[in-house]
Design a protein around this nucleic acid. Structure first.
Length: 293
DNA sequence: GTCCAGGAGTGAT
DNA sequence: ATCACTCATGGA
């Protein structure tokens, strides 16, 4: 078991793992359970520490710190993006929310599945992919690792459809093939600038503006990416319409230009706009969740 | 039963 | 380059 002393570092497991950026983590009582690089992690927040049980247990605290982005200077980042009352209110509501450094392929595959889908369905799909195609984890009878691109490239559209992918099955299959064949090297994109990494990702089938931005932000360390989904579009239109050039579309939800909102977010919130995006997104879904219960 | 979801591909203009 | 349309699925 690992014990990570958080000292004064702000961190919330519930906000970080429950805000919709990851899909395979779940909470069992006070313990969050997930799989990272073939290791089951069980994480509890007790007083000022994180208690981490890993299976197999050959991981160190640096591994966990990197995944949870405990190396980010959160107070400095939040001070930087906190440009107005709307975002500051989101920050105060979600104290300790951090982005996560996801595995690149799992993130890419997950967000291909995520397009035009809702969170609960995405979770189901990604979990079924793990159960059907992932390999067993030594010491854990239940959970599987997320299947590699190579493994998924050898599956079929029918098998993927059986996991609930619907019309996205060929997208995932062909993207897995492209990655497995080395057409695009996700690891090297971590060192590329945001624009280059995004352009490379968008060559893959099923990967457009939004999915590419999600992968850049959640897996490729591009904190200056600003994904725009329907919720971000709505919250920006509702709260920042004065910054947008077009006056139409305040109330209607007619197709909106991705470029316009994306460019606004990136210039307005600055080099850590990805964090701003996630606070706005999480804050909005939280409102919806409480409204419906 | 209707509506909607962390959108993207396609074809027409 | 930018519309308008379609796409499969299941939870609310």
């Amino acid at each position: 078991m690992l014990l990570l002393d958080l000292k004064c570092t702000p961190f919330s497991l519930d906000c970080t793992l429950g805000c919709g950026q990851v899909f395979r983590w779940h909470k069992d009582n006070d313990t969050w359970i997930g799989v990272v690089e073939g290791h089951v992690l069980r994480v509890r927040h007790i007083e000022n520490r994180l208690e981490v049980v890993a299976t197999p247990d050959d991981v160190d605290d640096v591994f966990v710190q990197r995944y949870l982005r405990l190396d980010d200077d959160l107070p400095r980042i939040l001070g930087d993006i906190g440009r107005d009352e709307v975002i500051r209110e989101a920050i105060q509501t979600l104290i300790g929310l951090r982005l996560v450094r996801q595995e690149a392929w799992e993130c890419l595959a997950s967000y291909i599945c995520a397009s035009f889908n809702n969170i609960s369905r995405i979770r189901g799909i990604v979990n079924r992919l793990g159960q059907r195609f992932g390999h067993d984890i030594r010491g854990d009878p239940v959970l599987q690792s997320f299947p590699s691109a190579s493994v998924l490239s050898k599956s079929t559209c029918q098998e993927l459809e059986a996991c609930g992918l619907g019309y996205r099955a060929p997208y995932l299959l062909d993207s897995a093939t492209a990655i497995a064949e080395g057409l695009i090297d996700l690891e090297s994109l971590k060192r590329a600038p945001y624009e280059d990494a995004k352009a490379e990702l968008m060559k893959l089938p099923g990967v457009g503006n939004k999915v590419a931005d999600c992968v850049c932000l959640f897996a490729l360390d591009k904190l200056d990416a600003f994904p725009v989904d329907v919720w971000i579009r709505r919250i920006i239109v509702a709260n920042y319409s004065a910054h947008l050039s077009t006056m139409e579309g305040f109330l209607s939800l007619k197709p909106w230009h991705y470029r316009q909102i994306n460019a606004f977010g990136r210039s307005y919130f600055g080099r850590y706009c990805g964090y701003a995006q996630q606070y706005l997104y999480a804050r909005y879904s939280k409102v919806l969740a409480t409204k419906r219960t």
